[in-house]
Amino acid sequence: MKFPEPLIEGSLIRRYKRFLADVRLPDSTEITAHCPNTGSMLGCQPPDGRVWLSRSNNPARKLPYTWELVETAPGTLACVNTARPNAQAREAIEAGRISELVGYSHCRPEVKYGEEKSRIDLLLSGHEAEPDAWVEVKNVTLEVNGQGFFPDAVTTRGQKHLRELMAQVALGDRAVLFFVVNHTGIETVRPADHIDQHYGQLLRQACDAGVEIVAYRANLANDDGSPSGRMALTEAVPVILEV
């Protein structure tokens, strides 16, 4: 997928109240942008860091700018807009780029399921040889020395999703935890036991119960580190569960 319009570069002043970010544009104008990320954004809000915004022409929007990308280190980009990963995953699956999930003819988003009243991100059906696949998508942007970690804050919601996925496996369907790696510096993905130990334990339990875990990285940057304008998932990333 591509951004519909060229992104606007700026300099981060601060993020606050979770959903707001003050940004200085190249002409020194200061604007407030929507920050579509409920997580801690650990490592993704460096002081005075380079950021890129999209702009909406919808006159009904209170904040026309949306924070999309941040440069976490020179030449390294991360996508902080957590509204993007579901679309990235769906596009890649429907294009046949996710080898683990080829062969499904139908993809439905936001389907209600489970005893804990969840909504699955993507429900795949219509495979000639495989059962339906319930796909939960997670955005990975926390990076330390090339390793990606999830989650970046304690997530009771994420823990619930793992329990729901295990229940679907017990019913005879496939269940897939899909890590969308929206950080160009991440080479592997691990559970963030140092942040949410219970999530890490549940993730390993889910794997043992038959939940499949995949991770694919987005091509956010050009060779010079500038934003490519594309967000396609093109490369599998190893998931490491060993403590």
Rank of each mutant, 00 (worst) to 15 (best):
M1Y: 02
P4L: 06
P6G: 12
I8R: 15
G10N: 09
L12P: 08
I13H: 14
R15N: 02
K17L: 09
K17V: 04
D27K: 15
T29S: 08
T32A: 05
N37L: 01
N37Q: 06
N37E: 02
T38S: 03
M41L: 09
C44P: 04
Q45E: 13
P46K: 11
P47E: 09
P47F: 02
D48E: 13
R50Y: 10
R50F: 03
W52L: 01
W52P: 06
L53H: 15
N57A: 08
N57I: 00
P59G: 11
A60L: 01
A60I: 01
A60E: 11
K62N: 03
K62R: 15
L63D: 11
P64M: 04
Y65A: 05
T66E: 07
E68K: 10
V70T: 12
T76M: 10
A78P: 00
C79I: 03
N81F: 02
T82R: 07
T82L: 00
A83H: 05
P85N: 07
A87P: 00
R90F: 02
R90H: 05
I93W: 13
E94F: 08
A95H: 12
G96L: 07
R97E: 00
I98W: 12
I98Y: 14
S99I: 02
E100G: 08
L101Q: 14
L101F: 13
L101T: 09
V102P: 07
Y104Q: 04
Y104E: 06
R108P: 12
K112Q: 13
E115R: 04
E115H: 06
S118Y: 01
S118A: 10
R119I: 03
I120Q: 00
I120H: 07
I120P: 08
D121A: 08
L122Q: 13
L122E: 07
L124H: 04
S125F: 12
G126Q: 00
H127N: 14
E128I: 09
E128S: 15
E130Q: 13
P131A: 04
D132P: 15
D132N: 11
A133W: 06
W134V: 06
E136T: 13
E136V: 15
K138E: 00
G146D: 10
F149T: 05
F149L: 11
P151M: 10
L162E: 01
R163I: 05
E164F: 08
E164I: 03
M166G: 11
A167S: 07
V169C: 04
L171C: 09
L171G: 00
L171V: 06
R174M: 15
A175K: 01
V180E: 01
V180F: 04
V181H: 12
V181A: 14
H183E: 00
I186S: 06
E187C: 09
E187G: 13
T188P: 15
T188K: 01
T188Y: 01
V189R: 01
V189Q: 09
P191R: 08
H194P: 03
I195K: 14
D196Y: 09
Q197N: 10
Y199G: 04
Y199M: 07
G200M: 08
Q201W: 07
Q201D: 00
L202C: 11
Q205T: 13
C207L: 06
C207K: 11
A209M: 09
V211G: 05
E212H: 14
E212C: 10
A215C: 06
A215P: 15
R217N: 02
A218N: 00
D223L: 10
G225K: 07
G225P: 13
P227F: 05
R230S: 12
A236R: 14
L241H: 00
L241N: 02
E242W: 10
V243A: 14
V243W: 02
